[in-house]
Structure formats: C-alpha cells, structure tokens
Amino acid sequence: MLDPVFILAPPRSFTSLVCACVGQHPELLGLPELNLFQADKMEDFWSGREPDGQLRSPFWAVMRHGMLRTVAQFYSGEQTIQSVNMAERWIKTRRDRTSGEVYRELAEHVAPLRIVEKSPGYLRSRVNLDRLIATFPNARFIHLLRHPRGQCESLMSAKGGPALLFMLGSVDRSGEEPVLDPQILWHDANAQILDFLEDLPAERSIQVRGEAFLNDMDATLARICDWLGIRGDAPAIEAMKHPEDSPFSQVGPINARLGNDINFLNAPALRPGGVTVPSLDGPLDWRPDGASFHPRVAEMAREFGYE
C-alpha cells in the first residue's frame, strides 16, 4: 500500500478540480473530502464532537458526506440512499478505532491504487496534520497555490464565502470598523502549510500553481506524474483531464449529497479557456479603505512566483 497524496491549500484554490483530475490517473484514486483526521476516534468523527463535548462544526453532518460516499462506493460500487445507510453502519462498527486506523483500512482496500484527497478542514489545526503524518509517514503533499487576489475575490463572491471568512476569523479589526479581509486566511493557511511541509524531506511535497495547472495542464500533470513516479503517457494524462468521470464528481444521494464544493459537483468538467493571473499591485476590491495587499501577503505570494 502506498501512502496517499494529500492536497493542501486555502479554500477556493481549485482544490476540488485538481484533486478530481489527479485522482483520475489510472494508478491513483481521487476521493471526496473525508475529514477523517479532524477527529482522533471514529466515535468522535461520527458525532462531530470534540472529546470535551463541543460540536466540531455546525456543518459537521455535511462534513461526513465525503466519507459516507466513499465507503458506499468502495463496498457497494454505488452511491444510493441504501448504500449510504450501509456506509453509516460501516463507520459505526468502527467507532472504537482511530481515524488513522480507518483511513489505513481504506487505503489498503483500494491498493495498489493510491488515494488522492483534500479536506480543507485538516488545516484548521496542526493537530490534524500531525495525526495525518503519524498515520501516513510517507504521504505526499501537493501544496496548491492560487494568486491571493484571485483566491480572495473568489471567496468574497462565492455563496457563503464571506460568512465562512467571518467564521474563520479572516477579519481585519485593526481599524475602527471591522473589515472582512480574505487575505488573512490566504496568508495564514499557506503559512501553516509551509511550516508543516518544512518538516518533511523536500521530495515529499510539490508546489503547484493552480493557474498554471489550468493554463498548461499537460505540462503540469506530467510534472505531477513525474514527481509521484507514475506513468505520464498521453492516455494517462488524457484520463486526468476528465474529472467528471469520477463517481464522486456529481452530487450524491439525498442522504449524502456533498463531500465536495457544490459548484464543482454541479459542473465538474474542465471548461475550455484558461484563467488570467492577476497582479499583486493595486487596491483590493473588498477593502473600503482602498488598501492593497499586506506586505507579508505580497512577500509570500512572490515566494510562490506570483507578481
């Protein structure tokens, strides 16, 4: 069994698309957001409560959808109301196990295919990432990047995006009035990823700019294949360009609809045409004071190769 490939990125960084594309490689298997490492015990994963009884997230019931869909697909080959009920039983019979043990069981079940997954929730705490690496010491990581202006604008315009930013505390409170400022989240999430990856040997992670992925897909996919040591021939690359072929790339049954961004699930196929890469200079649309990027945000973005 090969340890999985995880995609780490702030929200709205093309993670759904990249995970589904890479996961379509014939030696890989892209999964929905499992969120497993947000809990230590499966009992806590199922209840959505921390050991102290606190609800992990108001959306926790929805955050189990990816796991339910995965188990339903793995053990019944279908995602239906009935198979999701079956998946609930599968999870509940493992309530005494750790999330790591269960994740390994899934990884062994699909071996020799190698899992590709992204759960943005893993970034909520370093504990989650430590749990991950303790389970999969040889995991690999794609640090997926997006220009801060594109990522921030996307979050601000997404349905529920501003509310998410608020909940995650991406608020500039330094002035008189609070300002919702997505660059805080962009910066801190990336900082946390960099911190985490620095502890690993360099070959275990790769940085991929989302814009490059979309604008020069063949070359970027080939680079990822090369890094993972998997075949990068034309049929493999072509398969990766069809994220819509994954059984997880559509809405699920009524009792486990999501497991991924709903916009991606509603339209998973690649769309023709590339994306433009914005500039780091100039005022930010979401700032009423006309401010531009915080110097540390700009500095980090330049480190990532953005201008």
Partner: peptide, 22 residues
C-alpha cells in the same frame, strides 16, 4: 508556527492557533 500569522495581528478576537474558528 514558525511563520508569524496575520490573524492575531489584525484580529485579536480570533483564535490564534492555526486556521481556526472565530
């Protein structure tokens, strides 16, 4: 964290550890 985060600097109300909840 080895890199200084922005949130504690700009929003003291926010939990400081990682990308957490307000």
């Amino acid at each position: 964290p080895r890199r200084a985060l922005l949130a504690p600097e700009l929003n003291p109300a926010r939990a400081v550890e990682g990308v957490a909840r307000m």
